[in-house]
């Protein structure tokens, strides 16, 4: 039991839960990247089928963004890194 006024520290399990919370990799629309390039990049990085990649690419184009992957933060950051490396505009969002 914590004494009144004593600082509350997060336990290791709480930290692990934060990392394990599902995160979304979101690709954002931009005026430069070619549609075909976006599809091919999604296929290369995530191993998606041509059909799935095209659907996601069209979501990016029409809706302005698309959730392309969900899962743990560490892996999500790795994917965003790869997308940025390919010059696609992407970010991380916590799954609501």
């Amino acid at each position: 039991m914590n004494a009144v006024g004593a600082p509350v520290r997060k336990s290791k399990s709480q930290t692990r839960e934060k990392i394990a919370e599902p995160w979304q990799v979101v690709v954002l629309d931009d005026p430069v990247n070619l549609m075909e390039y976006v599809s091919r990049t999604l296929i290369r990085i995530f191993g998606y089928s041509r059909e799935k990649a095209d659907v996601l690419m069209m979501d990016v184009h029409i809706k302005g963004k698309a959730i392309v992957w969900s899962g743990g933060r560490e892996r999500a950051e790795m994917y965003v890194n790869q997308l940025h490396s390919a010059q696609l505009h992407a970010t991380l969002e916590k799954t609501k």
């Binding site: 954002l28 890194n81 940025h84 490396s85 505009h89 992407a90 991380l92």
Partner: peptide, 28 residues
């Protein structure tokens, strides 16, 4: 230099500007 543009898309917790941005800058 477009590497900063990508860092701005990320939250501070990711430390993107310290870890990833220099790599992207070199690559670009």
């Amino acid at each position: 230099d477009f590497s900063k543009r990508f860092s701005l898309l990320m939250d501070e917790d990711s430390m993107w500007d310290e870890i990833v941005e220099p790599e992207l800058k070199d690559q670009f």
